[in-house]
Amino acid sequence: MSKDYQDNRKKLGAMLKSETPKTPIQEVRPVPSPEPVADARQRPSHLNFWVEDQLMQRLKVYAAKSRKTIKQIGNEALEAYLKEHE
Rank of each mutant, 00 (worst) to 15 (best):
M1H: 11
Q72R: 02
V51A: 07
Q72E: 05
T20G: 10
L82E: 06
V31G: 03
R29T: 12
K10S: 13
Y5I: 14
R29A: 06
E19L: 12
D4N: 07
S66C: 06
M15Q: 05
Q57N: 06
I70Q: 07
E35I: 02
D53Q: 07
S45G: 12
M15V: 04
P44L: 00
N75W: 08
L47A: 15
P44K: 00
A40V: 11
P44S: 00
E84M: 11
V31Y: 01
S2M: 08
N75C: 07
L12I: 14
M1I: 11
A64V: 03
E19D: 07
M15H: 03
V37F: 04
L12D: 06
N75Q: 12
V31E: 01
D39Y: 00
S2R: 13
R41Y: 02
H46K: 14
E84H: 10
D7Y: 06
A63E: 00
N75T: 14
P36D: 01
P44M: 00
Q54A: 14
R41S: 02
P36F: 00
K65C: 04
T23C: 13
Y5R: 13
S18L: 09
Q6Y: 15
M15G: 08
E35Y: 07
K65D: 15
E76I: 01
M15E: 08
V61H: 03
R58F: 05
A14H: 11
P36R: 00
Y81N: 02
G13D: 14
P34G: 04
A64Q: 07
Q42C: 07
H85R: 12
Q26N: 09
E27Q: 15
R9A: 09
N8F: 13
P21G: 12
S2H: 03
Y81E: 06
I70C: 09
I70S: 06
K65M: 05
A40P: 08
T20C: 14
K71E: 13
R29C: 08
E52T: 05
E27A: 15
L47E: 06
K17D: 08
A80H: 03
L59K: 04
Q6K: 13
G74E: 02
R9I: 09
T23A: 15
A64L: 03
G13P: 11
D39W: 01
M56Y: 14
E86S: 11
Y62T: 01
A38D: 03
K17Q: 09
H85D: 05
K11I: 08
A77L: 10
P32G: 08
D39G: 00
W50V: 10
P24V: 04
W50K: 09
A40Y: 05
K3F: 10
E27G: 15
P36A: 01
A63C: 02
P32C: 07
E35K: 02
E86R: 12
D39C: 00
L16H: 05
K3W: 10
